[in-house]
Design a protein around this nucleic acid. Structure first.
Lengths: 225, 225
DNA sequence: GGTAAATAGATAGTAATACTATCAATAAAT
DNA sequence: ATTTATTGATAGTATTACTATCTATTTACC
């Protein structure tokens, strides 16, 4: 049961058995991130994942109902992690402007932080989130799964950011819209820079995360002035 | 070959045979919009579509390689249509502010315009775009398909909007980012209002499109001042 | 250290999906 | 009236997304 690093408390309807709690499960998570990155959601199968960890399909089905739930688990883990980083960086920071700056920095640049767990490569997970996370909620059963709380980590995180926005600008009418848009915009614009460059002003070079952060700060503070 | 209504010139790699050019193809399009809306992309199959138009799988495969290409065809059609509406409403309109207002109105409210074609229900197509369009480009082969020009309609449209932004505010550094974000934001916030209300300030009532338009205008003009 | 309980491996099987191929029937174009 | 293009009917294959069962191996704990 070798427990390593931090663990997040994720909604228990996401999994059959929480992979964070066993070394097999941690291997599963670790390999699934690499494989989602490699194959994309559509080509990813439990059979291929089983091969990657020298295991069997049946064993993986003991942890997750299907690959959708696995992706949802990873996205929830990711948002919990970003929320955790934001919390840490907001401690003892009172200035509302600086607080929002820190939030935007963490949204865009979280994956450059030092790793928290041996079995999650946050950097590659971020890539997976950019490419695949929208598929986790653009589904037929979104209402049912929302009732079950399967998107809670994201909603809590958006609420956290909305509160930072409200503290800076209490009269602003759309704090939740702006907050969720910050997350969606960040993912989209990185994706566009990498794949559909005509849809963004961000160039696909090393500096892109910093440039994006700058752009998002610029727009955000204009909106809130 | 009964040709009805307007036709858009879509990239020929989207289809094997352009469905706009035959009455069978038009029936196919018409039914596919309803079926995507009904089932969602994942549960949609060519077999079910064939049943819906009393035809066979094999016949549908003569028009489209797979359901991904069909969805991509519909999204391109949709963006061509929005572009067409924007063009019409910008004729003889010189004031840069009013031009941007019209653009935002069309992005959010296009589906309330009077229908252009008998075989496309633009209103339901808009719903499909909101729910499914992001899956059309979040794919492994995005770079290859982009080279083939399969996302051209969207890129042209974003460029059109970016130009309207530039005319209003020539010194603004991120016109493409803002333009693509207007489209993505519009779809996302409607989706959130309907399914994940904690992520937005827009309430899910009749007025939501107008409220969203108002919110987007407010933020957009703040950014460009 | 020994035994029960939990976990993982191995294998098999099924229904549905995503196609491809072939040939006959029908509608359109000349 | 006849060639040509289009659609229908049917069959077949590999892969996917599971479920079930039984055995082997760890792990927990007394």
């Amino acid at each position: 049961m070798g427990e390593h690093g931090i663990q997040f408390d994720l909604n228990s309807d996401l999994f059959i058995k929480d992979p964070q709690t066993s070394s097999y499960g941690q291997k599963l998570l670790s390999a699934s991130i690499l494989l989602f990155d490699d194959l994309g959601f559509e080509s990813f199968t439990f059979k291929k994942l089983a091969q990657a960890i020298s295991s069997t399909e049946a064993s993986i089905y003991r942890y997750f109902e299907n690959k959708h739930k696995l992706l949802l688990y990873l996205t929830n883990w990711y948002w919990e992690w970003v929320g955790y980083l934001i919390n840490i960086h907001l401690i003892n920071l009172e200035d509302p402007k600086k607080r929002l700056k820190v939030v935007i920095h963490q949204i865009v640049n979280a994956s450059n932080e030092s790793p928290l767990t041996p079995y999650v490569n946050e950097n590659i997970l971020h890539k997976v989130i950019i490419q695949e996370s929208s598929k986790a909620y653009h589904i037929r059963d979104v209402d049912k799964e929302n009732k079950e709380g399967l998107f809670e980590s994201y909603q809590t995180l958006v609420d956290k950011v909305a509160c930072v926005i409200k503290r800076l600008s209490p009269s602003f009418a759309y704090p939740y819209m702006l907050a969720s848009n910050l997350f969606e915009m960040s993912n989209n614009q990185i994706f566009f820079a990498e794949h559909l460059p005509k849809l963004t002003d961000i160039k696909n070079n090393k500096d892109k995360y910093n440039k994006l952060e700058e752009a998002m700060c610029h727009m955000c503070f204009k909106i809130l002035n």
